[in-house]
Amino acid sequence: MTDPPHSRAWYARLARELGGYRHPWTRVLDGPDPELTFDALLTEHLRPDTRVLEAGSGHGPDAARFGSECARWVGYDRQPELLELARANAPAAEFHLWDGKGEMPTDLRGPFDLIVSRRGPTSVIDHLNAVAAPDARFLYVGPRLDVPRVPQRLRSVGWASLGEWRVSVRAWAPTWADWQTRCEFMDEATSREDWDAHAGARGRCYQEERYVLLAGRD
């Protein structure tokens, strides 16, 4: 991809070429997907009366998968192309265009019982007290074992961690093109020389990492 990673043009291209916000490289995991921890916690906190706000809904995979298990699923994203796909993928959910900056749209003000962010914008933390029901929970997953700014920002708005999970699974990028795309996606430097020095018959080994956090009001 020629557009700067995680720019609006880059996300629009993902929507066009991959049909959503997906990892644009092939990977082979030697163990369970580390995001299963997030899935399990999300499922545990869904009830028929739960109202969910999803920050960074992307093309709507979680709304399509989990939306029927709760009373209301509302998502927002800054990328119109992804929201168009989300509305088609999860027609029972609600989706709104917002970049997490400035005044929050009225339709996103809740109250919500569960606020979720699967690698989505951490800026939603600044709005938790405005959107959250009294006993609400915030569930987040990030792409590295530590995301220090998340617990720090939570403390700044009077929320505290109820649990943290760090999951790491060995993974393989089978080809140089896959490895190059992965490094671009993760904003990591690489070179063909590095690939040639470390790749083997299965490709290049790396750790697929996730940091999962569940929080509530302190």
Rank of each mutant, 00 (worst) to 15 (best):
T50S: 04
T50I: 00
T50M: 03
V52L: 06
L53V: 14
E54G: 13
E54Q: 15
G56P: 08
G56A: 12
S57F: 08
G58D: 04
H59I: 03
H59P: 08
G60P: 06
P61Y: 09
D62L: 14
A63P: 07
A64N: 03
F66G: 00
F66T: 01
F66M: 03
G67W: 05
E69M: 02
E69C: 03
A71H: 12
R72I: 06
G75I: 13
G75V: 09
Y76E: 05
Q79S: 01
P80C: 04
P80T: 04
L82A: 11
L83E: 00
E84K: 06
L85Q: 07
A86P: 09
A86L: 03
R87L: 00
A88T: 04
A88N: 08
N89H: 09
A90L: 02
A93H: 02
A93D: 13
F95T: 12
F95S: 08
F95M: 13
H96N: 11
L97T: 11
L97D: 10
L97Q: 12
L97A: 14
W98E: 09
W98Y: 14
W98C: 11
D99A: 09
D99E: 08
G100L: 12
K101E: 14
K101T: 11
K101S: 09
E103R: 11
M104E: 03
T106C: 01
T106K: 05
L108V: 06
L108G: 12
L108F: 03
R109C: 12
R109L: 07
P111W: 06
P111G: 14
P111T: 12
F112V: 12
L114N: 04
I115A: 11
V116T: 15
V116H: 08
V116I: 15
S117Q: 04
S117N: 11
S117W: 06
R118L: 15
R118Q: 15
R119P: 00
R119K: 12
T122M: 15
T122E: 14
S123C: 14
V124W: 15
I125D: 13
D126G: 15
H127C: 11
N129Q: 13
N129M: 07
N129K: 08
V131F: 10
A132F: 00
A132W: 01
A133T: 00
P134F: 05
F138N: 04
L139H: 07
L139F: 10
Y140C: 12
V141W: 03
V141M: 04
G142A: 09
P143I: 00
P143E: 02
P143V: 02
P143L: 01
R144T: 02
L145A: 07
L145N: 05
D146M: 06
D146F: 08
V147L: 01
V147P: 06
P148A: 10
R149I: 06
V150I: 15
Q152Y: 07
